[in-house]
């Protein structure tokens, strides 16, 4: 019998180990960079006083081991250094941009699950018929589609040709002032402030990037959920439920409950992989979120930001993993306690 305390400790231990490995990789980025660390961290032409400050801050004239320890300690304290592009600390930059990214990711996950899970269930239940082939085909196309290509296609159709969507120029029309930050989501904040114009504009700007991400998520979820449900349809207890004259709704419920662990895992997998896709979509739509910030830092060699972005991605993955394991544990305890 597993003890919950031990499992949590084990998970946290794994998380700590993974963090150390990622931190090491980030650290080595600087050590193995094509330019001296001072240039990587301080920009192409650091001033002499900036240079001295960086050397002192990072301990660049000390042994590598000491540098690594300092790096880990600083990172744990939430100090990621400065971006030489924006001049601000990376922590401040990230915090300012995080709401934009979260807004995109949350809506995309909700919409993606809302489309993908029912589509997967319907596909499995219509096994061998045209509906299944359609759902499966659409899922395969969506899963194989590069994210930026789908974004551009949607822009081509809805912005260029049909002119239904606003220009991909960020989170709000340029002529409007953003609402004061309450939740960080322009749309929700505008509604809370009863600013109809801003709310409408924020919603309009959200639609295409959210739709792009949601379709990509839905495509993969459709395929994964279909497989999970199909496995349930082939179980003995499902066959027996049919022999008992269960209605379609009840059969769906039985299959969904049986497939719940797999569906939850598929959903968590989408969560964990989402930041990378979101970064690309943010770039296409000039969203100004964390993802775009990270991508631009990579293309320009802003190493402090790159390090922080990699750490953030890893932290998100770890968080999702813990969430997945935690919910599974709770669900299992609920069944065991019979």
């Amino acid at each position: 019998m597993e003890r919950p305390g031990r499992t949590i400790l084990r998970l946290l231990g794994i998380a700590a180990f993974v963090f150390l490995v990622i931190a090491f990789i980030c650290f080595m980025l600087i050590k193995l960079g094509a330019a001296p660390p001072v240039v990587l961290l301080g920009g192409p032409n650091p001033m002499p006083e900036e240079r001295a400050q960086l050397i002192a801050e990072y301990g660049l004239n000390q042994p590598a081991v000491v540098q690594f320890i300092r790096y880990v300690v600083r990172t744990l304290a939430g100090e990621f250094g400065r971006s030489w592009q924006t001049g601000a600390t990376v922590a401040d930059d990230l915090l300012a941009r995080l709401p934009a990214t979260l807004e995109l990711m949350v809506y995309a996950l909700l919409l993606g699950a809302l489309i993908g899970i029912p589509a997967g269930v319907a596909a499995a239940f219509s096994r061998g018929r045209a509906e299944e082939r359609t759902a499966r085909g659409a899922g395969l196309v969506g899963a194989a589609m590069p994210s930026f290509l789908l974004a551009l296609l949607l822009l081509l159709v809805f912005f260029r040709w049909l002119d239904l969507s606003p220009a991909p120029s960020g989170r709000l029309s340029v002529v409007l002032t953003p609402p004061p930050t309450i939740t960080g989501s322009y749309f929700i904040d505008a509604i809370l402030m009863q600013d109809a114009a801003a709310a409408r504009s924020a919603l309009g700007q959200l639609i295409l990037p959210v739709l792009t991400l949601a379709l990509l998520i839905a495509a993969q979820l459709t395929l994964q959920v279909r497989t999970a449900i199909l496995m349930q349809l082939d179980t003995a207890h499902f066959a027996y439920a049919r022999a008992q004259g269960m209605s379609r709704d009840m059969l769906t419920g039985i299959a969904m409950r049986g497939a719940a662990p797999s569906i939850w895992a598929a959903f968590c997998g989408q969560c964990a992989a989402l930041l990378g896709t979101t970064a690309v979509i943010e770039y296409v739509f000039a969203w100004g979120g964390v993802g775009q910030y990270g991508l631009e830092a990579m293309s320009r060699g802003d190493f402090a930001v790159m390090q922080a972005f990699i750490l953030l991605s890893a932290a998100l993955s770890l968080l999702v993993h813990l969430m997945h394991a935690g919910v599974r544990r709770v669900a299992r305890l609920r069944i065991r306690r019979a």
């Binding site: 179980t235 003995a236 207890h237 066959a239 027996y240 439920a241 022999a243 008992q244 039985i254 409950r257 049986g258 069944i335 019979a338």
Partner: peptide
């Protein structure tokens, strides 16, 4: 309908 029963016959997720 009565089937050959085993540990997989009944819905495992309901009492």
């Amino acid at each position: 309908f009565v089937v050959q029963a085993g540990h997989t016959t009944l819905d495992p997720s309901a009492r």
